[in-house]
Structures are given as structure tokens and as C-alpha cells.
């Protein structure tokens, strides 16, 4: 309604203003029924928010949101946005060197590739990731960085548009991240990641999960898709090699990692207490491959080989404080 419409009657205008005065003083009078509805509105307007406050708070929230977007993508616990990632075959020697020289602390190590591992180290207030293993001997050396971003797919697309070469399209990874891999024009590798809420493929994981080591995982996965209607859940590729993958057939998940040499298939064993299962297996005559260790993807695992040559990996979700 425009405000230059017909003027209300002057007596009403004055009478109503007296009511507003009384309302603002905190004592709404018993007005005549005709004005009662207006008096009620006036009483409610005492609580009207200040438009300047609403605008100030909006700007404050926008500023906070920008800071959140640009600097603090959720990262894995203990990680900053960018973490240098060193890739060398003789990583154990390098870690020893860093421990002796800089008092580095190894906080986590999990097996990787056929004979390798990825370790997290802390030096002062900084983190460092180191991948090692003899399987890296023939590969080119590169500088690599792990980066947490709010939206991995969008950052991956920007990286490709900016001249990067894809090393692996964004996909949900078994270690609780969605990530894509890009090589920049100078040859550096960027592992662009967004943290996933919880493990990406927990449904269908039984207590025992078969773990295969095919020489090539892609044709093996394709075969299972065509033959058994398998569904691809996660494929973790690095340098053209599938390090870890999971597929679902019916109600069962099967996991695998490529191995150029023959390796016996192993069994991933989900138990309540990884340490107790490890001790029981040792007592029953198994040989330790690695002791119970908290892994980056959220499981505590140990590796064992039974007296018949089969490998077992008891695992328990890492206990979280929250």
C-alpha cells in the first residue's frame, strides 16, 4: 500500500499515537476493540530487530565464511592444509636420518603398494608424509604435496584447466578421502583431497574380507563387473598403478592391490580387538608381518602369515576421543 493514499482520520491518528507511547513505556492500555489488533502489532514491534545489527551480523558471517572457505578445509586430524609428500625407495633410511637430525617423530605408518609404506612424521610444528618401498625404484622422482580443499572435484577441474595433467580422476579413496591426482607443468605431483565423513565403503564388509593381489587390477575389476555384476566402490591409483581397490559383489566387498609378482591373497579380518587377535594368532603359530598399528584410513591393523602361507590382517576401527 503506498503511503500517499488517503489520510486516516486525525482523531484516530492521535489516539493511536498515545497507545504507541503507552506500549513503548511498557504499559499497553485497554484500548477499544477496534484498535486492539493494532495495539497488539505495536506491542510485538517493541521486539523488532535493529536492521543495522542484522546487516552487521550478515557481514561478520560472510567474512567468517570466506575465511573458512579459503583457509580451513577440513583436514585429517593432525594435518594442515598442505603437507609435503616425499617419495623415495629407501624411506626407512630417510626417516632415520630425519629422526637423528631433526628429532622427527613417526606418528603413523601403513603398508602401501607391494612392499612399501606411507609414514606420517612430525618435525616441530610441521607434518611430512613419506612413501617408501622398493617398488618405487624404477619410477621417476617427483616433488609431491598433499592438499586438503573444500571441494576436491572443483579444485581438480581448476588444476586441469590451469595446465595440469591428470594422474587420476577424483574418486572416493579407501583411506577416508575423496581425491584426485594432478601433475603440474613443472612435474610436481598434487594430491588434491577432501575429507570424507567416515570410511567410504563400510557396507558389505564382513568379518573376513578377501584381499587379492592381481598383477593388473583394472582388467580384473572389469572381469568381475561383466561376469558377476560387480560394483566398483573405490580405486586408489598412483603413477598408473592401482594401489588399493574395493568392489562389491552382492552383499560382499572384495578388496585388492596390484602386485607385479605373485603374492598370496590375504584376508582382512574385522575384529573387536586387533591387538588381542594379533597375540592369539602369534600364540597359534603365525608369523608377524607388522605389529598392530593405527592406520591413516581409520583402522588399527596388524599383519600375520599363518603356518600355511596365508596372510591375515586383523583390524579394529581406531578409537576416537570424540
Amino acid at each position: 500500500m503506498p503511503d500517499d493514499a488517503l489520510m486516516p482520520d486525525n482523531a484516530n491518528v492521535d489516539q493511536f499515537d498515545q497507545i504507541v507511547d503507552a506500549v513503548l513505556a511498557g504499559a499497553p492500555p485497554a484500548s477499544d476493540p477496534e484498535l486492539a489488533a493494532l495495539t497488539q502489532i505495536a506491542a510485538s514491534l517493541r521486539d523488532l530487530p535493529d536492521e543495522n545489527f542484522q546487516k552487521r551480523l550478515r557481514s561478520d558471517l560472510q567474512r567468517r565464511a570466506t575465511m573458512t572457505t579459503s583457509t580451513v578445509a577440513p583436514a585429517r586430524e593432525g594435518f594442515r592444509t598442505v603437507t609435503p609428500f616425499i617419495v623415495v625407495p629407501n624411506a626407512s633410511e630417510l626417516i632415520e636420518f630425519l629422526k637423528q637430525t631433526f628429532d622427527a617423530e613417526e606418528t603413523n605408518r601403513h603398508p602401501h603398494g607391494t612392499d612399501g609404506f606411507v609414514a606420517s612424521l612430525k618435525i616441530g610444528d610441521s607434518d611430512l608424509l613419506i612413501m617408501g618401498g622398493q617398488f618405487l625404484r624404477e619410477q621417476e622422482r617427483f616433488g609431491a604435496f598433499h592438499v586438503f580443499v573444500p571441494d576436491c572435484d572443483a579444485a581438480y577441474d581448476r588444476a586441469i584447466k590451469a595446465g595440469g595433467t591428470s594422474l587420476g580422476e577424483p574418486a572416493d579413496r579407501p583411506y577416508g578421502e575423496r581425491s584426485g591426482f594432478v601433475k603440474d607443468a613443472s612435474g610436481n605431483y598434487w594430491y588434491i583431497a577432501t575429507l570424507l565423513e567416515g570410511p567410504p565403503h563400510t557396507e558389505g564388509l564382513g568379518t573376513v574380507t578377501p584381499y587379492a593381489h592381481p598383477p593388473k587390477a583394472r582388467p580384473f575389476i572389469d572381469f568381475m563387473k561383466k561376469a558377476f555384476n560387480a560394483q566398483e566402490l573405490a580405486v586408489y591409483e598412483q603413477g598408473g598403478r592401482v594401489m588399493h581397490a574395493a568392489v562389491r559383489i552382492g552383499n560382499t566387498v572384495m578388496e585388492m592391490g596390484e602386485s607385479p609378482d605373485f603374492q598370496p591373497s590375504s584376508f582382512y579380518l574385522r575384529v573387536e580387538d586387533c591387538d588381542a587377535a594379533y597375540q592369539s594368532a602369534l600364540a597359534a603359530g603365525a608369523m608377524s608381518l607388522w605389529p598392530p598399528t593405527d592406520q591413516a584410513w581409520g583402522d588399527r591393523t596388524a599383519g600375520l602369515q599363518d603356518p600355511f602361507g596365508y596372510q591375515w590382517i586383523p583390524s579394529t576401527p581406531v578409537k576416537k576421543d570424540r
Binding site: D3, A5, D17, L38, I41, A42
Partner: peptide, 15 residues
């Protein structure tokens, strides 16, 4: 008077 009229008009509008 004009301010009082605007006040009443606004509240009538709201009602």
C-alpha cells in the same frame, strides 16, 4: 502529524 499518520498507516498495513 505526517509522522503519526505514517506510523498508523504502517501498522494498519502490517495488520
Amino acid at each position: 502529524g505526517a509522522v503519526k499518520q505514517l506510523q498508523l498507516r504502517a501498522i494498519e498495513n502490517l495488520r
